[in-house]
Amino acid sequence: MSASKKFAAVTGAGSGIGRATAIALANAGFTVALIGRREEPLLETRETIRIAGGAASVFSADVTSEASIEQAFSRIAHEFGRLDVLFNNAGRNAGAVPLDEYSLDFWNDVVATNLTGVFLCARAAWRLMKTQSPQGGRIINNGSISAHSPRPNTIAYTATKHAVTGITKSLALDGRAFNIACSQIDIGNAATSLTERMTRGVLQADGTMAPEARMDVTHVANAIVHMASLPLEANVLNMTIMATTMPFVGRG
């Protein structure tokens, strides 16, 4: 195996930020493991990469299932031989729901995907990065603007994204002994199908409804490629990338 060949895994690679990032990583020379629940969109991502001359493989897995993730990363280790980068991206949106209307099932579903899923994928990648030779790698977690500031009525989503920041800091600390770097990218209003509703108006902190600016998702993908391409002696611990005029800083 060429010492210069790099391998990356992207969860939630079938659409949105995950697909854009997988394509960008492949264009940058990474061989990419495409991870997600539904095989068909993963195959579409792989075909886009193949047409552009890149290399990718599909690994169907559910990030909320320990057995599913362990199996996927075992297959990655067998097929690739190592893993240099994990973009821990898979997550689910959770619309605005008043606290007194939250069901426990809804809360548990958001936590299972956005928090437990991040943990399971990070643990599986960590085990591989710790034992491979040369040792080490990089884990990039997808946080959110909500890791800093909530939207109205989003307690579950906001709690999980704040918790992802804790995971990032813990892994960045604990990874020092094993040459494993950990980063977090907090994204505000990338133009994907999940944020289409923002162009029509979303609830603001002052109770009004207002449309919000979005940015091309390729800017996010290119930022992740930059983070992924750094030597392990350097790390972007936290990056916030956002639509310039979205209501995050200041008072709206």
Rank of each mutant, 00 (worst) to 15 (best):
T195G: 14
N189Q: 13
T21E: 01
A90D: 08
R151N: 07
I187K: 13
E196A: 15
L173G: 04
E47M: 09
E79L: 10
R138F: 04
N89G: 13
I23V: 14
H162E: 07
L42H: 15
F73D: 04
T192V: 05
G16M: 07
M129I: 06
S149G: 10
A72Y: 01
L99P: 07
A22R: 03
P134M: 03
F30S: 00
L25C: 00
N153Y: 14
T240R: 11
K130H: 14
T160L: 00
Q71M: 11
P152F: 07
T165Y: 03
F80W: 04
G188R: 10
L237W: 07
G16C: 06
S68H: 00
E101C: 10
L104S: 04
E196Q: 15
A24W: 04
L43T: 02
P152V: 07
T245S: 05
E212D: 06
F87G: 12
S15G: 10
L237P: 03
F30Q: 00
I167A: 06
S133Y: 06
A52G: 08
V220I: 09
K6W: 01
R92P: 05
P41H: 05
G175Y: 00
A67D: 15
G91V: 11
A3V: 14
L25R: 00
S74Q: 13
H148P: 09
A234T: 10
A213Q: 15
Q204S: 11
A125T: 12
F248H: 15
A181G: 04
G53K: 09
V110G: 00
G29V: 02
I185D: 11
F106H: 09
G12T: 09
A94V: 11
V202F: 11
D206L: 10
N114D: 10
H226D: 03
H78E: 00
